[in-house]
């Protein structure tokens, strides 16, 4: 029962657009400006920074996609870190055993999906506290990978960049966007695909409805449990892919706890992007950019303690999150198990 009275004055489309995207556009223009200026000063460094931006942002945006698929259907997933870690580990192991990178990637995805299934079972069927469920996954992944990891395993290598013909030769952006290994390309496609699914398809409509008002969805014959299960499992699979990126594409080997908090940063990226794939992508790119700049600054001969420079990306994220990005609307039913009767 609601009591809304008179209609609010609607914003004009241009106002609405500005309100929604103003900050993003401002930041984008600033970043592009800095980049071009840098390019004129030093082309090689700039291209390296951009390439590193993409590299840093890939696992974050994948993690954020996982998080937002889950939360759009009202399941909080703080186990992204664990799902990534297990994906990384399984992908690596399978690569060691088979030497087949494709099979390794698929194994990583399956491992992530399995962790997704576990989370879905705990939070949807058992109606457990979802923070506890996510923590279980994080601890489980840390324990499993730590226990089974043996030092000295080696592989035949990692996935290599595939230049996309002449596109890769475009100045500034060519090397960063069009000369990447497969998982990075897959990430570009996934961002667009998840955006499309979430906002333009039947499944997306149902997912968002389940995240906002599951009972309303139920009364229209939408299977709330199924929607949540599928989203959480697919989310887990994407987190697994993020893990595969780390071991099979970025580094080429596994280390204990190598995700190093990326799963949690991904959650921040998801919030920063207001639960939208494109927004999360922008946020991840910004964070990646700040990180890449930070690395460059450490090389440069500046008299600032490197610890402070190391903080830069985080400080930047906090400032932007708290200062510029307006309130993020959390899905109304987020974190609440659905009771049928």
């Amino acid at each position: 029962m609601q009591t809304t009275n008179t209609l609010p004055a609607p914003l004009s489309p241009s106002q609405q657009f500005l309100k929604q995207w103003g900050v993003t556009i401002f930041i984008a223009i600033a970043v592009i400006g800095i980049t071009i200026w840098q390019y004129i000063l030093n082309a090689q460094v700039t291209e390296a920074v951009l390439a590193s931006t993409i590299r840093q942002s890939t696992p974050l945006v994948l993690g954020a996609l996982c998080g937002l698929l889950c939360e759009r259907s009202a399941v909080i997933n703080i186990g992204i870190e664990g799902q990534m870690l297990l994906g990384a580990f399984v992908g690596f192991l399978v690569n060691v055993w088979t030497g087949n990178l494709l099979i390794a990637v698929i194994a990583a995805i399956l491992a992530g999906a399995l962790m997704g299934l576990l989370l879905a079972y705990m939070s949807v069927t058992l109606k457990m506290d979802q923070i506890i469920g996510g923590t279980v996954i994080n601890i489980l992944a840390l324990g499993l990978t730590g226990y089974f990891y043996q030092v000295g395993l080696t592989t035949d290598g990692k996935m290599l960049p595939i230049p996309l013909g002449p596109l890769a030769d475009i100045p500034i952006i060519g090397p960063a966007f069009f000369n990447n290994p497969p998982i990075t390309y897959a990430t570009f496609i996934l961002v667009i695909a998840v955006h499309y699914v979430l906002f333009y398809t039947k499944w997306g409509l149902r997912t968002r409805a389940v995240g906002e008002h599951p009972r309303a969805a139920d009364t229209l014959g939408v299977n709330v449990f199924k929607v949540r299960y599928v989203n959480v499992i697919v989310g887990g699979a994407i987190a697994g892919l993020a893990g595969a990126f780390l071991t099979l594409e970025a580094v080429g080997s596994f280390e204990r706890a190598m995700t190093n908090g990326r799963g949690f940063v991904a959650l921040a990226v998801m919030l920063f992007g207001k639960y939208t794939p494109l927004g999360a992508w922008g946020a991840a790119l910004l964070f990646g950019f700040a990180n890449a700049m930070q690395t460059q600054l450490q090389f440069a001969d500046i008299k600032i303690a490197h610890q402070f420079i190391g903080m830069l990306p985080y400080v930047l994220t906090i400032v932007i999150l708290s200062g510029f990005v307006g309130r993020t609307r959390v899905p109304a039913a987020d974190g609440v198990p659905y009771e049928k009767e």
Binding site: L205, R206, R208, E212, L220, G221
Partner: peptide, 13 residues
């Protein structure tokens, strides 16, 4: 669903 448009609410399901 409060944040959905009338159309989205109508067709859901």
């Amino acid at each position: 669903v409060p944040v959905f448009s009338v159309t989205e609410n109508m067709i859901l399901g």
